[in-house]
């Protein structure tokens, strides 16, 4: 069964650099865990503690696979009237946000994302339920996207 691709506009997939960014964040935590487990095992001499780094390694492998799958499924499309955001493979979702409903647009980038030259673009409507964020947009494209969204939003602004 095909998943949603009814957008008239082409889907823009997010940058693969997002994979790197998420991997770095995840592996930093796992590395701390592994080193901690290793150190504890060395100090106490309890072999059972070696399970900690092993489990962390397995989790890391699985997480890496998940990250690749998630990032390659994350895309957005700019239709005539709406912005469409698609995400996830296992738990997948499509969000349709009319430009006229946008209250404001955020562009965010943490240190790792900045180093890699990507950013997160987040749209806000009057609804707290609207989950319309696009992670891993190339930084230059992010600014252009924000401007485009803002212009379209102003042109079609429809109150609440």
């Amino acid at each position: 069964m095909a998943w949603y691709d009814n957008a008239a506009a082409p889907w823009n997939f997010v940058s693969r650099k997002l994979i790197t960014a998420r991997m770095i964040t995840m592996w930093i935590w796992l590395a701390i865990l592994m080193l901690g487990g290793l150190a504890a095992a060395l100090i106490t001499g309890a072999a059972l503690l070696l399970l900690v780094p092993a489990v962390a390694l397995v989790l890391g492998g699985w997480g890496s696979w998940l990250i690749v799958r998630q990032v390659t499924a994350h895309a957005w499309a700019e239709d005539e009237e709406d912005l469409l955001v698609r995400r996830g493979r296992m738990f997948r979702s499509v969000t349709v946000v009319p430009y006229g409903r946008m209250q404001f647009v955020d562009v965010k980038a943490g240190p790792i994302e900045r180093a890699l030259g990507i950013a997160k673009v987040q749209l806000h409507t009057a609804s707290p339920g609207t989950d319309a964020s696009i992670s891993g947009v190339p930084a230059s494209e992010a600014d252009r996207l924000r401007d485009r969204l803002t212009t379209r939003g102003e042109a079609r602004l429809a109150g609440l």
Binding site: M1, F91, V94, V96, T125, A126, G129, T130
Partner: peptide, 23 residues
């Protein structure tokens, strides 16, 4: 305000999906 379409693995196996209306 906006619309969402969501599906988890169980619903996918059964050919189901949810439509959420964001208010």
């Amino acid at each position: 305000q906006s619309l969402g379409l969501t599906q988890g693995p169980i619903r996918r196996a059964l050919g189901l999906a949810n439509v959420v209306v964001h208010s």
